Computed example of a mutant assay.
Amino acid sequence: MHTIRVWDLPTRLFHWALVLCVIGLVITANVGGNWMTWHGRLGYVVLSLLLFRIAWGFVGGHWSRFSSFIYHPATLLAYLRGNGRPEHRAGHNPLGMLSVFALLAVLLLQVSTGLFADDEIAFTGPLVSLVSGDTVSQATRYHKSIGKLLLIALVALHVLAILFYKWFKKDNLVRPMVLGDKQVMAPLPSALDNTASRLLALVIWAVCGAAVYWIVGLGQTSWG
């Protein structure tokens, strides 16, 4: 067995921060009222995290890069037939690829429509003033119904997949996301996870946070 660093610290922090924020978003959306202020703030944090993950997918640790888990359809079919490769037990396997990209896309669409949503009760997105009333209505309808249900379904499917791999395939996917390391059968590369890479991640997230702050401010500027 070989012990390798699969998930670098920035990826792990992103993952668990996203988990907490999504839970917070669901709770605040259902409670409503004054909690919608926090719903909006958590949405901004999620948007900054998603922008960070997209950037980190190009410059992060080996297994966090998109290039390490973008698979050809033939590879996906082979995996479904039981013909997996050693690297599929390290980072994201072909099915994990579908899950990751689906979650990123749905989350990005959900927080993006939230910027233009207006429930006419407790929350108005910061960019409502930039679009037409029809666009606001469509964004609100998607954000409160389709997008919300789709996100909950994907999260539930993600959790079920983790339980399936743990119980039936004896592959604990949570432990490496907590500790970073994983034991694999083949000598595979470890993800770079040193002080320099962590500082780079911090800078990238700060830039993403600044970008979200600028985006949110666009609506306020238009009102002015």
Rank of each mutant, 00 (worst) to 15 (best):
M97H: 01
L151I: 07
L50S: 06
L76Y: 11
A117I: 00
T140I: 05
Q110I: 03
A105G: 10
F69D: 03
Q138C: 00
L50C: 13
S145A: 14
D119V: 01
L130Y: 06
F116D: 00
I146H: 12
G96R: 09
N93I: 04
L115P: 09
G96P: 10
G57W: 01
R85S: 07
T113C: 09
R141L: 11
H62D: 07
S67L: 08
I152N: 11
D118R: 05
R85N: 03
L50I: 14
G96I: 02
A55N: 03
E120M: 15
R81A: 15
T140L: 10
H143L: 13
L149R: 13
S129G: 01
H62R: 12
L109T: 04
I152E: 15
Q138N: 11
T124D: 03
G61H: 02
A90R: 10
I121L: 13
S145W: 13
E87H: 12
A105N: 00
H62Y: 15
H62C: 08
L49D: 02
F66S: 07
L50E: 05
I54A: 14
L49T: 07
L115Q: 08
R89M: 14
M97G: 01
L104S: 04
Q110V: 06
S67F: 09
T124A: 12
L98D: 02
L103N: 10
K148H: 13
A102T: 13
S112D: 06
L149Q: 12
F123E: 02
V45L: 15
I146N: 05
V155Q: 09
G84T: 11
P126I: 00
I54Y: 10
I121A: 14
R141E: 14
Y44F: 13
H72N: 15
K144I: 00
S68N: 08
P86V: 09
K148M: 11
I54T: 12
I146F: 15
R141G: 08
K144R: 14
L104C: 07
G82H: 10
R141C: 03
E87F: 06
E87P: 02
F66H: 11
I152A: 15
A105V: 07
A153V: 13
F69C: 02
F58I: 06
S68H: 07
L107I: 05
I121N: 13
S132Y: 01
P126G: 08
S99H: 05
L109Q: 03
L151K: 08
L51M: 12
T135N: 08
L104A: 09
V45D: 00
D134Q: 14
A122E: 12
N83P: 00
V128E: 04
P73L: 08
Y79V: 07
P94S: 11
N83F: 01
G57D: 03
H72M: 03
G91W: 01
R53W: 12
A117N: 07
S48C: 02
R89V: 06
S64V: 04
G133P: 08
T135E: 07
G57P: 01
S67T: 14
S68V: 03
H92Q: 12
T124F: 01
Y71F: 14
W63H: 11
R85G: 01
F101H: 04
S64N: 07
G96E: 04
A78W: 01
F69P: 03
H88C: 10
H92E: 12
L150A: 15
T135F: 15
F52L: 05
L104G: 03
F58Y: 12
H143T: 00
F116S: 02
T140Q: 10
H72C: 06
L130Q: 04
